[in-house]
Write a protein that binds this DNA or RNA. Structure first.
Lengths: 205, 205, 205, 205
DNA sequence: GATGAATGAGTGTTCATTCAT
DNA sequence: AATGAATGAACACTCATTCAT
């Protein structure tokens, strides 16, 4: 029952927003009574916190798995991470949207905890970037924090517009983002492109 | 008075969120009574709509100015647009955050109108990109819509974390974003870099 | 309206008790809506506090008047005070019962304030007793605090059983209490005791 | 288990009041579940009734013992009764406070029964006083009912303020009360009464 | 004897909104 | 232009109680 309440709440919070979703809405959807809701959750806010914790903890766990794979370059890790985020939209898109939209309804203590987790995620990404720079995979003339904020902004926003059942495949989206992030959108001059080609060849060999 | 209500509402909606800000909060801040509020606004929602309209219309107007400048390349127009957005954080950050967070509280008709404006902004950007591609300024092997969504995600998110009074200057932020967008973060191989240099020289000449 | 709410609330709190009286009960009695109640009172508890403050402040004011009358002996002042309490049952009996029964529903801060006032009332009575002892009006071999607690217990309980419209007149009740109290705590002179007999004899004849 | 529930309930009802104590509070304190509570008690109100019945029945039984002691004068019986009440504060103070505060939460039938017992206790005391008057132990010019209400008010209130572990010993409290009461209602000796007249005359002049 | 999931009526409270003045 | 008393629907939440196991 607890699980069902969580699931339906996420649905409704995604569809209508936290403040416009009443406990009544939730229990009506499930077909139970108020008492049942409060048997499983102390308050509406605690339910929201639960959703947040579930989401960020799973995300951190998945991030950890990717980061710990020693056979991957930092570039590849970043690619996999973006892929992870995009591919999760289908399964966890609702949670993700709730997570990214409704955290303002948490109280101060809850918010602090969630923001610590958020930061943890960002800092790890930053470290990934930093290591990649040291290894010569990434440029060393950009502020890491800004770059990461930029990448996260770009990728995370997908939750708000990307339809996994639409005409753009997940692969194309991931590849496009990675391409922009790695190479930029500027058209290279001929010579540059040639060399780029060589590099690419050299690289993939 | 109307202006004061708008101003204080934006402040409060930014600080506490739309649903957690009551009319009472607003009028207490200003020091008037309920009747006054309803003399100037039909409803709380109409006030929110007003804020949205003011924001998006001004943004579109400023976009228009930049786009109509025939002395700028598309690359430069994009740079100026990003600069516009970042520099607006100091003056219009509150409005922007309200605009990007609270639109879910508009009713269907209002939301449709706002979304049309939003789309107009995005489509214009997309056209800018498209023209740039035709002129050879930008790569032609990426989907325009995805690229624009990516860029907007990256830049717009700044409203949520960027502190214009912090250690990063607006110029640095704009340049970093433009650099990532145009060139990417991948470290170029020597030969590539050399050619890049040439391009840059060629470019600035 | 505020006054009406106060009045009807006291009635209901006296009749049914604070916790069993709902806001709904109160507004139904008056014929207004919930909003009206909350326009005048921040909460049910604040209403209760208001009742308490009104009651104790008026009581203290009346105590003050009696105490400041310099033409009265301490014995007479005590008599007048008891008379005041008993005679108030008709007009303020409901308030008094609410005051003496429902204070446990106040929160800690409210309760502290009310208890300070309560204590003030008691301490003043104690001073009255102390002065009377010094002037030889009362016995000096009893603890003032206990005596006052005893007197207050005796007199205050009347709110719970005394019916001002019943067969016992207010005068008789006051006189009986004073008689019990005075002839108990009054310093008996040897000679005095002898003469008392004469009166009694004379009286009963 | 039944006993534990009773004990903890009295504790909680004394500390927080009946209406503010939930079944949940009670079972949490004991460490059992709701079912257990309802296995032993039909309802919360029945539990309250149980507490009331236990209390008043024991009190009546103890009253009975004192009253049936044929070696005691009525004066002594009254003294012992007051002593009984005061000394009980240490052991039964919580029950007594619950009994004197929470009876309003009983339903009509329960309340009627409890009030009958209460009355029985009072009437017996009144009879004790009446017999004492006949035997010349107490004054005969005061209404018995009022006197008993007064005495009970005085003594019973002790439950609300008297701390058996404080600086005033139980003996001192009992003696003070008895002193106040007895020397008030006690029939004065001949010689003593004669002198009173003189004082009074002297006084009013 | 004891569990604990589920009930559902009821509670205090909030708040956007109206309207006579 | 502005007031502020009054509305009333909605809300989050509580809690004594039931009952299948």
């Amino acid at each position: 029952m607890r699980g069902r309440i969580l699931k339906e709440s996420i649905d409704l919070f995604d569809k209508k927003g936290f403040s416009k979703t009443s406990i009544q809405d939730i229990i009506d959807t499930i077909g139970v009574t108020k008492g049942t809701f409060y048997y499983y959750f102390k308050s509406k806010q605690e339910l929201l916190m639960d959703i947040h914790l579930n989401y960020i903890k799973e995300l951190l766990a998945e991030q950890e798995v990717i980061f710990n794979d020693e056979y991957l370059s930092n570039k590849e890790k970043m690619n996999n991470l973006i892929s992870l985020i995009i591919k999760n939209i289908k399964i966890h898109g609702k949670s993700a949207r709730v997570f990214n939209r409704e955290f303002r309804h948490l109280d101060d203590n809850q918010l602090k905890l969630i923001n610590d987790y958020r930061k943890e995620f960002r800092i790890k990404l930053q470290k990934l970037l930093g290591e990649g720079i040291e290894k010569g995979e990434f440029r060393d003339d950009l502020r890491c924090d800004i770059v990461i904020f930029g990448i996260l902004g770009m990728v995370n926003r997908s939750y708000n517009w990307y339809d996994p059942d639409g005409e753009v495949s997940e692969e194309e989206l991931v590849n496009t983002y990675m391409d922009i992030i790695l190479n930029g959108i500027k058209k290279e001059e001929k010579t540059a492109l040639i060399n780029e080609k060589i590099i690419e060849n050299h690289f993939t060999v």
